[in-house]
Simulated assay, not measured.
Amino acid sequence: MSIGNSPPDDRPSVGHALAQARVAAGLSVEDVSTTTRVRVPIVQSIEEDDFSRCGGEVYARGHIRNIARAVGIDPEPLIEQYAAEHGAPVTPPPVPPLYDAEKIRSDPKRPNWTAAMIAAIVAVIGFVGFTVATSGGDGKSTADATPTSTVTTPSASATTPQGNNGANPRPNPSSSAIAAAPPGKVTVKVSAEGGTSWIQATDSNGKQLFQKSLKEGESKTFTDDKKIKLIVGNAGAVQLFVNGKDIGRAGSNGAVVRLTYTPGDPTQG
């Protein structure tokens, strides 16, 4: 690298031109160094046309450009003059070729015919397998090959007892009450068949066995050695079974009755 060559004409050297411009701008070397971030010794060397401290031609051109802008002159003529004086070719800033920009653009996605063909083949294989499985292997459908089982359901007429015009008679609850009645004791079954009824039951010792409302369809059975006392609300809704015998409704609808039963009943005590 040349330290300082004389210009071929009357033009000032690159360094001298930068120094003149700095003085004309009223700037010191320190001011230029602060603005360009180029160290003071390097600025001084460049003004003396000594570019050996720049670290290479690329850095020298960069320093010349920055200093020229800092002192207010056009850097390009100085870059060209530096290249002519020091044999450094002027390298224009690289312009990306057109095809690079074309590469950036993503090509439109083409149909993936391979994936489409694979999907079609899989679909055909699946359809053929399903057809074979459902045909039983001989071209007949499984519906034709499977024997039909016949379930015989008893008709309503066969299971309906005769009488009452074919209607199902209400089961007689007295039979269950009879089976549940132990000998030598009093057993009272209260069944709320006509609606909700409030029931209180007490044994022979005065112990309260039950005190609650029975909803329609509910029933309750009480047993004692000597006596069962009842208080029945809405008596017309309650059916009574005493010692296994159906004695009918406890009373009229809405009425409250008090009843007592012993082992010798169904006669009311």
Rank of each mutant, 00 (worst) to 15 (best):
E85S: 05
I79Q: 14
S45A: 13
A119M: 06
S176P: 06
N112S: 04
F51D: 05
T35P: 02
L214K: 15
T223V: 14
P108V: 02
A84D: 06
S191V: 01
Q81T: 06
G194N: 12
G139R: 15
A237G: 00
P108K: 10
L214T: 02
V232Y: 11
K226H: 13
K212A: 14
A255E: 14
K220L: 07
T146Q: 09
P182E: 11
R65F: 02
V132G: 04
Y261G: 03
A250I: 08
P89S: 06
M117H: 08
L78Y: 03
D74Q: 13
F210T: 02
E193F: 13
I125N: 09
Y82R: 05
W198D: 12
N168M: 09
D225V: 03
T153W: 15
N165T: 03
I178Q: 15
T36I: 01
N205R: 11
Q81N: 04
V128P: 01
D74W: 04
R170G: 07
R53I: 00
A70D: 04
P8F: 06
P75S: 08
E48K: 14
A133V: 00
A192Y: 06
G264R: 14
N165K: 06
E193P: 07
L209C: 10
A84W: 05
P111C: 01
R105C: 05
G62S: 12
S149A: 12
E57S: 15
I73V: 14
M117S: 11
K109W: 05
S149P: 06
L18E: 00
M1Y: 02
T36N: 08
A120F: 10
P169K: 12
N205W: 00
L240P: 05
E76R: 06
D10R: 14
E218A: 14
I247E: 12
A143L: 06
I46P: 07
I228F: 14
S52Q: 12
I64R: 02
Q81P: 09
S28T: 15
N112Y: 01
E30N: 15
I73S: 08
H86F: 05
I125C: 12
D9G: 13
T153P: 01
P173G: 02
S6C: 00
K189W: 13
Q208S: 11
N165M: 07
R110P: 00
D224R: 05
D246A: 09
A255F: 04
A235K: 15
I67G: 04
P263A: 07
K212T: 09
S13V: 03
P7V: 05
S197Q: 07
T202Q: 10
A119L: 12
T153L: 11
A192K: 14
V14W: 01
R22W: 01
E57H: 15
A167E: 08
N243V: 04
N243R: 11
V40I: 11
D9F: 04
P169C: 03
A21D: 03
V242P: 08
I67T: 03
A60Q: 08
P93A: 10
G129W: 06
K185Q: 15
P97T: 12
G15E: 04
S6Y: 05
I67D: 00
L230F: 07
A156F: 04
A180C: 05
G139W: 13
V43T: 03
H86D: 08
